[in-house]
Amino acid sequence: MWRDTWLIFKRDMTSARRNMAWIGIGIMQPLLYMFLFGPLLEPVIKHTPGFPPGDAWTVLTPALIIQLGLFSSSFAGFGLLADYRSGVVERMRVTPASRMALLLGKVLTNAVMMLFQAVLIIVLALVVFDLDAPLGGVLLSLLIAGLLAIALASMSFGLALRIKSEEAFPAILQAVLIPVLLLSGIIMPITTGLAPDWLYAVSRINPFTHVVDANRAVFRGDFAMDALFTGSVVLLVMAVLAVWWGARTFQRENA
């Protein structure tokens, strides 16, 4: 299985390398937030009580990484739809390669691209915006980013293969992602001090809230925190379920 995973991974990485322009466009969104939104957040955070601890960049940078995952890995399935239309998926499914490998090779490519972009964001935050984060925290944050990409990309591939429609797929994603984004406190942290009780309660149900909290915790160097533990467990459970579900989708239909 690992051999096949490696083969698929290599293929998708080749394709990614040949389409660097798309990755450039993917990273535009977080960069725009850093340049056009970050400066606004600085005074707001300084003067408003109720924000999580840390300055604007320790609050914003980890959140932007999660947002990048939400918006780039979730759309990974779109590329699979192109492969599905051109018959590449069937051509691979007719070989003895393990179905799990067909999924994992793609998912890992996505995770590597995610890490690459996350590193870019962090370096930029460190260099341009004097973000102050411990090295251990940054490394842990990359681990979180990688796991998040695995979870989201698996879900995305599974969803794409079930929906099989280039029109419905992005529409469904948009419908799901916007509430998930707002309810996870990425743009505006949802804390007891800032949000009404009901909104806070709802945000706690959103698993991504816990992932964002965990990522903020590691950026502050807060490794003993509850938030890190909860977030890691939530993320691991999501990743395992997503990979299992995605692999099942690749297996489906088959005799």
């Binding site: 096949d4 293929r11 080749t14 051109s86 051509r91």
Partner: peptide, 22 residues
């Protein structure tokens, strides 16, 4: 397959090699 199964962004040799390796 009736509709084929080649990825437009790969070369002839890459496609055959991958299939053989799979």
């Amino acid at each position: 397959a009736q509709g084929g199964g080649t990825g437009p962004g790969f070369t002839v040799a890459e496609e055959i090699e991958l299939q053989g390796r799979l």
